[in-house]
């Protein structure tokens, strides 16, 4: 792995914890999560629904409703600046301008009563100093970039006049409007047909190259990850269980959960065989098991797993997994909550 200077790291989430408090219980949606995104790279955050990946993303933009949400700890360094310390008006200048987001549901994420031109131009109006004619030109340019045919005519269309795939393209155009350094994409293809999914993924790759931006791509679909990711973080029940380059994850997964996920992935080589499914269900964030949250479903679990939180085990070259049982180093890695300071 190449040596990185500090300035190459665009976003560094450190030890982030987000809790949701209701009357009588606390749901620890995200617990001590750390990851980083370098300039111009695509990082995937993978996990089942409810594992805290969307919450992490919304926290970066300061879009977690508080209450019931509460940020229990950690830092989010964007270009060296802690976003959690920013005031609301400072966050507004970052949102949509330096960090943009593409949401999961293109059907409901566009406002039905405004034309798509209006909605794209709005971000420009807020963040960029352009004349209205320039704004129109930029909108046309953006729609063209995301592959919408005859963009000038489309500007006056309302969202309901577009297909699902086109709406997601509009969402992407909206996100790109102000040349953001980072785009967070929260399962942007989940709600789309498979063929459209592939188109949108290709579009993402192409745009990431041409716009020189970093992408934090959130998904539950390892198939998507294998196409798009430079680096991968696997999340389970609010913690990161494994991280590494795409090749590390797909060819040498070290955490039982990642292994199970890969085994559950339908591929051509597994044709005719019964597909593996992980027994049990994702734990309720308000009542997680003690120790390793995965141990009730884990095939390698030993009694210690239910008693002590597992620490990160380093396999070198940026590949780490939070499973001491499968690590040669053994017991010394128990109880270490985070890996900060230990490489």
């Amino acid at each position: 792995m190449t040596f990185l200077t500090r300035s190459d790291i665009l976003l560094a989430v450190q030890d982030l914890s987000v809790h949701f408090r209701s009357e009588d219980q606390v749901a620890r949606a995200v617990e001590g999560v750390s990851f980083d995104v370098q300039r111009q790279e695509t990082v995937c955050l993978v996990g089942e629904s409810g594992c805290g990946k969307t919450v992490s993303a919304l926290t970066i933009l300061g879009l977690i409703p508080q209450p019931p949400g509460e940020i229990a700890g950690g830092r989010i360094l964007f270009d060296g600046r802690n976003l959690l310390d920013c005031r609301e008006d400072e966050m507004q200048k970052i949102r949509g301008n330096r960090i943009a987001m593409v949401f999961q549901e293109p059907l409901t994420s566009l406002n039905p009563v405004f034309t798509i031109g209006d909605q794209i131009a709005e971000a420009l109006e807020t963040h960029a100093d352009l004349t209205s004619a320039q704004r129109v030109e930029r909108c046309v340019q953006l729609l063209d970039d995301v592959g919408i045919p005859s963009p000038r005519e489309r500007l006056a269309d309302y969202p309901h006049q577009l297909s699902g795939g086109q709406r997601q393209r509009v969402m992407i155009a909206m996100a790109l409007a102000c040349h953001p350094e980072l785009v967070i994409a929260d399962e942007p293809t989940t709600a789309l047909d498979v063929t459209v999914q592939a188109q949108i993924l290709r579009l993402f790759r192409a745009l990431q190259q041409s716009h020189a931006m970093a992408v934090l791509y959130i998904t539950h679909d390892l198939g998507v990850v294998s196409v798009i990711a430079d680096r991968v973080y696997v999340m389970y029940a609010g913690i990161i269980v494994e991280q590494g380059l795409r090749a590390h994850i797909f060819d040498a997964a070290r955490h039982p959960y990642t292994q199970d996920l890969l085994e559950a992935l339908p591929t051509r080589s597994k044709r005719g065989r019964r597909l593996y499914s992980i027994p049990g269900a994702v734990p309720n964030p308000a009542a997680k098991p003690p120790g390793c949250p995965f141990h009730p479903r884990c095939r390698y679990a030993i009694p210690t797993c239910g008693q002590q939180p597992p620490g990160m085990c380093d396999y070198g070259d940026g590949h780490r997994a939070r499973c001491p049982v499968l690590f040669d180093g053994g017991p010394s890695h128990w109880g270490q909550e985070t890996l900060t300071g230990k490489v």
């Binding site: 027994p279 309720n284 141990h295 009730p296 479903r297 679990a301």
Partner: peptide, 14 residues
């Protein structure tokens, strides 16, 4: 129940 590993516990959501 998978016979291979009896150690797996069933997760009880309250």
């Amino acid at each position: 129940p998978s016979p291979a590993d009896g150690r797996r516990m069933e997760l009880q959501v309250p």
